[in-house]
Design a protein around this nucleic acid. Structure first.
Ligand SMILES: [Mn+2]
Ligand SMILES: [Mn+2]
Ligand SMILES: [Mn+2]
Ligand SMILES: [Mn+2]
Lengths: 241, 241
DNA sequence: CGGTAAATTTAGGTATGCCGAAATTCTGGA
DNA sequence: TCCAGAATTTCGGCATACCTAAATTTACCG
């Protein structure tokens, strides 16, 4: 019964989380990764991030000039993708094999990703049939660290008349996921934008989840969390009498 | 992505391991649990154990007078059994569902036991069909903390002529488990003691693993690691011409 | 009934990773 | 160009859990 918290030589779970978060913050949107964005995402003080960034730089995982945004090195990216792979395979396992709901898996995977062995991950991968995306539509990197992002855009960037299939939903907020599930909106749902109400107003859409189309209005946060793959530009007007 | 290593209010994984180890050291043999036995089992300095024991006492998990052995309180025993349940269910899962060998599961369970949620454990339990023992024959406590030890004794306590069925094998040493597997000795094997050679000599037995009986000599360490349930006292002599 | 060897605890120190407050640097108007 | 406010880093501290070396206590043996 080993008491040692983490094997020396390997990266601590904090290091793993920071590197993974740096990757995640720039996976779907390409804004620079600043200390404060990291601090917010990690629920940690800014000063803690500064200190950790110095350490990550010493470890060769990030490139950083003081007061500037941080960027992963090739090695950092490799570690990040390994962690992302772990996280997403674990989420898939929890849904597929243990019957978790898609809003329950993120937090559990967040801690498991640091403690399961490579062997565990490989066995999981095989048992799940080498899935290519997790329950939220996030692509799962290969063991070699290759990843292919679907050609999707956030719903809030769509104009009137555009239609698309939901490809990915951010799993950051469980409440949001629960809400969508209750509304029967999920991966594969087809959304057609009818109208954008300006000044933060809702995005009015027609939505088809398979059980017939209906209208739905997306608020700001919702529209920013949902990523949609284009299925061509129907004349949105034809649906609006 | 929470960076926090362990949620405040709950017990740290060190606390969990110490308490579980205190329980384990007295589960099968009833020698008093001393600092040095704990230190050896946890691969930690004696002084570290002293410090942690003080902390465990403050937490109400152990009763302890300085320079004396330590004992679990009712609350400590509850925590210990919860950890033991987690550990053994995880081991069972790794063997049953992920195809691990019985010598590979201990170390992985040792770290997972601290990170999976109660929900995870409950789902595992159901999915495994509420198993009553782990791959090494160690009984799995109920969610309420009830545990029933089989009426078994270590092989090294058997006299000539006694016969028994292997019920439990200590999972501390993976090499020992691999050796036994290679020799096709496992849970359920029936062992009849033919002779005890004194002064640390081997324990000579006839063993039946289902594929016909054969002779086998157990060394010291082996005989101390194997626990056997009596199946009556055959005239051992009848087997020895 | 000492007196010593073994077991245990205490003392002093290290490494992580976190925090709040204070100092520093950057940046976008005026 | 300058400068205030924002972002970032530095500083001093805290908590956990470990270690080695130096006390301290216990237990056994003569
Ligand atoms: Mn994590
Ligand atoms: Mn996900
Ligand atoms: Mn453990
Ligand atoms: Mn076991």
């Amino acid at each position: 019964m080993a008491a040692r918290t983490h094997p020396p030589g390997s990266d601590s779970s904090s290091v793993q989380d920071y590197v993974k978060t740096i990757y995640s913050l720039s996976e779907w949107r390409t804004e620079p990764v600043t200390s404060s964005r990291l601090a917010a995402r990690l629920s940690v003080a800014n000063s803690s991030v500064s200190e950790m960034i110095r350490k990550l730089a010493e470890l060769g995982l990030v490139a950083h000039k003081p007061y500037r945004p941080v960027e992963l090195t090739a090695e950092g990216r490799r570690l990040a993708l390994a962690m992302v792979r772990r996280h997403r395979l674990l989420e898939t396992f929890l849904v597929q094999d243990l019957g978790y709901r898609w809003d329950e898996v993120h937090d559990e995977a967040e801690v498991l990703e640091h403690t399961v062995s490579d062997t565990f991950i490989d066995r999981l991968d095989a048992r799940l049939g080498f899935p290519s995306a997790d329950p939220h539509g996030d692509p799962i990197p290969t063991p070699e660290g290759a990843i292919t992002l679907p050609d999707a855009r956030p719903l809030d960037s769509f104009d009137d008349g555009h239609a698309g299939r939901v490809t990915r939903i951010s799993d950051e907020d469980p409440q949001l996921l629960r809400f969508l599930a209750a509304e029967d909106i999920g991966l594969g749902s087809v959304v057609t934008v009818l109208a954008r109400i300006p000044f933060g107003g809702p995005l009015q859409t027609r939505i088809d989840t398979g059980a017939g189309p209906r209208d739905f209005s997306f608020g700001d946060e919702l529209a920013r969390s949902i990523w949609v793959e284009s299925v061509g530009e129907h004349a949105g007007c034809s649906l609006v009498p």
